[in-house]
Write a protein that binds this DNA or RNA. Structure first.
Lengths: 378, 378
DNA sequence: GAACAGAACTGGAACGTTCCAGTCGCATCG
DNA sequence: CGATGCGACTGGAACGTTCCAGTTCTGTTC
């Protein structure tokens, strides 16, 4: 049985005031720890508040203060553990600036995402972080005009008033290809999981790196046929990639695709990593579950989160220029990559020990902070 | 460059009223679609609102209405994809009752969880759903007295005013053991991942089911030594479970533990599922990634979510008695279970085809709705 | 002992809504 | 033709805070 909650009105500042025999202003002062109130009175007020279980009404406060101290985070897909570490980073940053984080998820659906954003705006959030969200460009432009907005992930084109944080897909892809080449692979194929901007630039970087390494003639891209549903025939693409007997290594544009390749290879009787080396992208939980464990490009997710919070703080402090950050990924080497059967490593390259992280090309940025800044295009 | 947002005050209902040449009340009426306003005037007001980009301030509305139309959901661990489907269910239910869902995560930490709950209370949420959250009992009791609270997961002991939704661990464990026995296994071991209530009752059900099947003498429980950190030596336990040559099957108390068992078995040269059958619990993404794919007990997660929303609605409609639901799990049979090498199946049991779901024992509940109700203890 | 300073506290206004008790004008009715 | 009723609209109060301009009181200074 539960006490009748409807009858028990939630205590307000006035109830506390009445009990302590002071005015509501005194209570407000005491609760917020402001000066201008005696220690003795303050203690009494605090005690009274405690006794009747007073809890400040954040809605009312937000209304009068004109600021909600709320930051909205929209996740495209809650089930993607990829997002989790980013969120943790955002939360830490937001907490540091005295704000609290409100999460919602768009369920991979632009329409739902827009609805969620609307409801966050209704709650007067002071800033918005969209994590890998799919949202119509028009809506994003409106947001850029309305409040500080940070997008984590790659945008088709920059939107005025919207900051972005992405990882350097070029560098990541290069890292993967160079790792395979250093092991002695020459016939390195690429499996591209989607046509979204991130996958596209990984593919381009794959091609250019192959070219630069003099392996251009051996480059092959296995992409999906343009089917509308996205996860349509990834397995078919993987099977296609695995059939070519000359291919000894595959760089996949994400871990899910890499998993499909590993499955296809095993199904055709290949033994991993001896017959086929596989590199994924995202360093998701998949990479630690699958056997052999997957070598994968890792994005600095916690950093992405704290950076988002930092950029939000800047915006709130008055920054009006757009900022676009590109972070350098690293490669986490695990058991899915090894020298091909026919050849040893071409150089004193990575030893391939499980879980060893390699920083992105040191020539491109200072590896000590792990990321670099690029200015947006016109 | 961004327009100076600070200068642009967010338009209010009064701005709309001024522009449309009516009173604020008329605008309020028009926006909410109430009667008492002419079609022509309404259209004009709506147009004006659109023009100046008016957006209702939910805070102010909540303040005066005394209800926020907000439901708070606290996730213990965002990275656990287990939760995702539950959240989707809650959201659907909440949307149906005209409320929106606010997510936060407790980061597996009781203290942080309490903080998150506090901030949700400050936002005047009308109900709270805690998903697998670890929160001090004292705090939970306070919540039970304050507002409708639903806990998804098993509680040590019922808390007055708090509803619970859990899956029937007994039935789930029985399902797993019976499946293995039907395949012909007699030496079925159990690996217990934790000492939390759910794992404990799975273990008890394992033991009693073994007993009932006349396999009591062959029952062995491999539990963790009492180490404070939870994931401490799961692998060691798994290795221990795998060393006994007579053991041909293992029922693990969750998928993570099952994965450890599979790893340990592979490491010791066993081939799965021929040398060892493994059953997990949770039917998490792990079970679909690992090879062979893991047979696992599945909890009706979407149902748990919608049920939570339903129970919340009941509470808001005035229910004051506590409700405790126990849902029946099913078994999803995949490739990790097969008849032992030495013996065929003892009966015309399950065929073991990949992904086939078996309902829980029909004698315990009507399988058509998939769940049953149990009344709480005194 | 009057003037003053400052600390401690108070009461009203404001925030952006909804709600409610009216007011106004107009058509209908007896 | 005056009363009645009703639809359309208005203005003030209220929600629970914070903020600000006062007010009171105590002690200090000349």
């Amino acid at each position: 049985m539960t006490p009748d909650r409807a009858a028990v009105r939630r205590p307000t500042i006035l109830d506390v005031a009445a009990r302590a025999g002071v005015s509501k202003s005194a209570v407000s002062l005491a609760l917020r720890g402001s000066a201008g109130i005696g220690d003795e009175t303050r203690a009494r007020i605090l005690a009274c508040a405690e006794e009747i279980g007073y809890r400040s009404n954040r809605l009312a406060r937000a209304l009068v203060e004109g600021r909600s101290a709320l930051v909205g985070v929209v996740l495209n897909d809650l089930s993607n553990p990829y997002h989790t570490e980013i969120v943790a980073g955002i939360e830490d940053g937001a907490t540091a600036m005295g704000a609290t984080t409100l999460l919602t998820h768009g369920q991979r659906d632009p329409h739902r995402t827009e609805l969620q954003v609307d409801m966050l705006l209704g709650l007067n959030v002071e800033g918005l972080v969209l994590v890998g969200s799919r949202i119509p460009v028009a809506a994003l432009e409106r947001l850029g005009r309305t409040l500080p907005t940070i997008v984590i992930g790659r945008l088709e084109a920059p939107v005025p008033g919207v900051d972005t944080i992405a990882n350097d897909d070029q560098a990541g892809a290069e890292l993967a290809v160079r790792h395979l080449a250093a092991l002695g692979h020459t016939h390195i194929a690429h499996v591209s999981a989607s046509l979204r901007p991130a996958a596209r630039s990984r593919r381009e970087a794959y091609l250019s790196t192959m070219e630069r390494l003099g392996l251009g003639p051996h480059a092959t891209v296995h992409a999906r046929e343009r089917v509308d549903g996205e996860d349509e025939d990834l397995d078919a693409v993987a099977r296609r990639a695995v059939t070519d007997p000359r291919t000894t290594a595959v760089f996949a544009s994400n871990d899910v695709a890499a998993l499909a390749v590993m499955d296809a290879a095993s199904a055709s009787g290949a033994s991993l990593p001896d017959d086929l080396s596989v590199v994924g992208y995202d360093n998701s939980t998949i990479s630690r579950i699958v056997r052999p464990r997957l070598t994968s490009v890792d994005q600095p997710r916690p950093l992405m989160g704290t950076l988002a919070a930092e950029m939000l703080a800047e915006r709130l402090a008055g920054r009006t220029t757009d900022r676009h950050e590109v972070l350098l990924p690293t490669l986490v080497v695990r058991g899915s990559t090894a020298a091909p059967r026919s050849a040893g490593p071409r150089s004193g390259g990575p030893s391939g020990r499980d879980g060893q992280a390699l920083p992105a090309d040191a020539g491109m940025a200072d590896p000590s902070d792990g990321w670099t800044t690029t200015k947006p295009g016109p």
